[in-house]
Amino acid sequence: MATYQIRVARSGSDGATDSFTVELDHRMTVLDALFLIQREQDPTLSFRCSCRVGMCGTCAMRINWQPRLACQTRVLTLKADTIVVEPLAHLPVMKDLVVAMDPFFEQWKRVKPALHPDPKRDPKKLAVVPPTSEFGKQAQGKRDCITCGACYAACGIVGSNEEYLGPAAINKAMLRLMDPRDNAVDERLEELNDENGVWRCHTQFNCVAACPKGINLTDSIMKMKRSLLFPKKFHDKRNFVDNP
């Protein structure tokens, strides 16, 4: 057990933070600390969480100036006695640590994240994606995105240009463009090739540092930039699912 000072950003008055002193076991996470504060010290503290195992992406918040999942951040790993907990940047704060995810999902919707199946394709026929193919390799880690918004909050470009697609949306668009079952190629390419699409990425790598699932988002964005030199290859999905 160790004593930690938790400074939580509150939405009441402008820019105010409340300090709480809590006793935490070294195995406990920031989310556990927030629950402890809510139960024992200040029941008005607001935050969001649901799965507590890092698979829902609900509890993303800025912990010690870095967007992280509160349920996956053990207090010990922060190597600090004072832990600063703030809501995600670039998203409107609703209360305390709760933010509205609307700006993030507005950009997410722009790239048509859902599957748009090819009407000519027999839906009963399963798509075969060998793990050694291009799509197989890309999908390995990059489909793990849980839309927590950490990359969007970490991105410096979003701070000055809220019309930028954001790393998560581009990553999703790349996976859909390579998907052999999907047909909405031109619409997605148009959004990606927009002035506020992939061209706004200046490889700050902030999204890669922030992603709690360890997705190399910059790699996805750079792949899309290079692919836009030869956009026709997305019309033949065999380019991505054939074994090399």
């Binding site: 100036w65 490889t203 700050q204 790598f205």
Partner: peptide, 26 residues
């Protein structure tokens, strides 16, 4: 001043990519 300090604190300066971006820009 609070807006500037918020901007400075908002991004992870210890990571190379962000620093490199500002170096390249300036």
């Amino acid at each position: 001043t609070s807006a500037i300090s918020l901007t400075i604190r908002k991004y992870s300066w210890k990571y190379a990519g962000n620093l490199a971006f500002w170096i390249q820009r300036l």
